[in-house]
Design a protein around this nucleic acid. Structure first.
Lengths: 196, 196
DNA sequence: GAACTATTTTGAACAGCGTTCAGGAACCGA
DNA sequence: TCGGTTCCTGAACGCTGTTCAAAATAGTTC
């Protein structure tokens, strides 16, 4: 009753996301084009659009995978004495993001402000911040742990944001990892200074 | 001996920069196109290219003006007790950037990593960090004042970076200004905790 | 087997982008 | 009036995301 699909759409979807990621890694956001995607998966732009609706949806899927990987990496960071634990978290986060600069840029650059974000996006960030709050609480941050974790996350985000576009050296001579660790140290010292 | 210029190139240059800024404010980076610029200044794309070489140069000039304005705003922040002084600096910075979200995005998004930055760019950032280091030194940061100023700047950058693309609320319920002030407070408290 | 229907896939087309550059335009000096 | 010289225009190139009429391919019915 109908022309049968010539593609396994699930497989095509997965392949497209895989290729999208490779394109991003190799050429940054400008390399992620509908035609390049289609060519690489052996289909045509129209088919990609039939599967994803638009290019942004492809990027969103890459972001999902990236975030899931990040979550796994963060979860794999062994806990320990709170200060060391935080350092390891910071190191892992910075290293992860800088190894994927261009994918990172896809995560944080550009999209419309009015766009609403899918639940997994928010949930993963929430989880990440929870992982930061744990050692902070251990250090005696008490009820402020969550707030401080948010603050620390944003600070490290600042480091990575500048490093990912190659502009951290305009602000400081220190490398990203050092700055992230110092942000951790400052937070820890502020906690040790006692309750507000 | 030659066809006379039909444009005052200095005036055309200035007008182009002015229009570029308006386009950015009204429609963000995507609105800054060669044809729109040319149309708005009553010239043709070719002429714009004759004056600026390429579109990025126009963006760079807008950035220069924005940074100069920022420098003026920061210089105008009255000093006072160090903690209040820092709060005012943070407020001024955050307010300035958020009032110019789209111009801000032009400042920090996208350009090639290999690009070298003009001296005024680095100099202005240096000046900005100097302004932050002053009250920190007053608070007893000693020789660490500069390092802490860089760190604080990067932290506040993280706040603004997320706020400018409308994603700060994915991390925290607090507004940008509050987070910036808390970054200040954390830094101050870390200093008060004594030398490292 | 032919016709019809339903679905999927294609790829040309559209409007726009940054950028280039052949050639028309406009002046001066001879 | 005729080069010479410079300036400016705007068509053109190759690219972009996206759309959609048409082609392809199947099952079903006559």
């Amino acid at each position: 009753m109908a022309r049968p699909r010539s593609y396994d759409h699930d497989a095509l979807r997965a392949a497209t996301i895989r290729v999208a990621r490779r394109l991003l890694e190799e050429g940054g956001p400008p390399a992620l084009t509908a035609r390049a995607l289609a060519r690489a998966v052996g289909a045509t732009p129209g088919t990609v659009y039939a599967v994803f609706g638009n290019l942004n949806a492809v990027l969103l899927e890459v972001n999902r995978e990236t975030f899931l990987e990040l979550a796994a990496v963060i979860d794999a960071v062994p806990d320990g004495p709170a200060a060391d634990w935080l350092d390891r978290l910071a190191d892992a986060y910075v290293a992860f993001m800088l190894e994927r600069r261009d994918v990172w840029r896809g995560l944080f650059e550009g999209p419309r402000e009015t766009e609403s974000f899918p639940p997994w996006y928010t949930e993963l960030i929430d989880r990440l911040i929870g992982r930061i709050a744990a050692p902070l609480a251990e250090l005696g941050a008490g009820p402020r742990a969550r707030d401080l974790a948010e603050q620390l996350f944003v600070s490290v985000h600042g480091v990575v944001a500048l490093a990912a576009i190659g502009r951290l050296d305009m602000v400081t001579a220190r490398p990203a990892q050092a700055l992230a660790r110092e942000a951790v140290e400052t937070t820890v010292r502020a906690i040790k200074a006692g309750p507000a």
